[in-house]
Amino acid sequence: MKCMIITPLGPGHESVAAECRQSVRAAAAASSGPFTDVFHLIVDDRQGALGRSAARNQGIARAREAGADWLFFLDADDLMSPAAFSAVQRYTSEYDAVWGMICEMSYGHDRSQLRAGQLGSTESFHEILSVPPFLSLQIGHFVKTALAGSILFNEDMDCGEDFEFYCREWSAGRCIKTSDVFFVNRRGLHSTGPRSADGQQWLNAAERVVNNYRQKLATATDRP
């Protein structure tokens, strides 16, 4: 199997992209896990003309053309975990999308930690929706190219589009959040540009997405 790492490079992230690239190389060198090939695609959006959704969708299209079986979305300011590929190996035969625990560090520091209070390992979409979105899932996850290509990111959304994508993955595929760590989210390096958003804007948008899916599930449960 082949895996493509997709990284949009937006405004303000040029200086940290090299560290992101190196982390992917180091992880693949340590172990490629179930993958015979690991490719890292940087989608250049340094002018901010595309936005994250369109940049990721371009990456998905490139991955399909290249015959990649799996994808991993890694932002340019984040770092791949050295054990990411070996850790996902036990899940690739049973699941369509795999998340790990939210692990973070402040930019300029070298000590990472798991986010306090977050949801642990689960296969339940109801549990994902039962906690605030910043305590459940993040963008860094493995997903089969076929599933990602059937969904795509909503290019009309400038904020919260990531969580809307997750919800559609959980609705359409076999998904799991595991106790593993696949990447480290480096905080304090927000992208800039015309389609960027701050943390509060993201939270507001993601909570709207979560509330919408809670209502959908409640309606489906109430049907005779």
Rank of each mutant, 00 (worst) to 15 (best):
V38Q: 00
H40I: 13
L41V: 13
I42Q: 02
I42R: 01
V43L: 11
D44S: 13
D45Y: 07
D45Q: 10
R46Y: 14
Q47I: 13
G48F: 08
G48P: 10
G48Q: 07
A49Q: 09
A49P: 00
L50A: 11
L50Y: 04
L50N: 01
R52T: 15
A54I: 02
A55P: 09
A55S: 14
N57F: 14
Q58K: 07
Q58Y: 13
I60Q: 04
A61D: 15
A61K: 05
R62G: 14
A63K: 06
R64Q: 15
E65R: 15
A66L: 13
A66I: 09
A68H: 01
W70Y: 07
W70M: 04
W70C: 05
F72N: 00
F73W: 09
L74S: 01
L74W: 03
L74G: 03
A76M: 04
D77E: 12
D77R: 01
D78R: 00
L79R: 01
M80E: 14
S81I: 10
S81V: 11
S81D: 15
S81K: 02
A84P: 14
V88G: 02
V88A: 01
R90A: 15
R90Y: 14
Y91P: 03
Y91F: 12
T92E: 02
S93G: 15
S93I: 12
Y95Q: 03
A97L: 08
V98E: 01
W99P: 06
M101R: 10
C103F: 10
C103H: 05
M105L: 09
M105N: 01
S106H: 10
S106E: 09
S106Y: 13
Y107A: 08
Y107W: 14
D110E: 08
S112K: 10
S112R: 13
L114W: 13
A116I: 12
G117A: 05
G117V: 05
L119V: 02
G120S: 00
G120L: 03
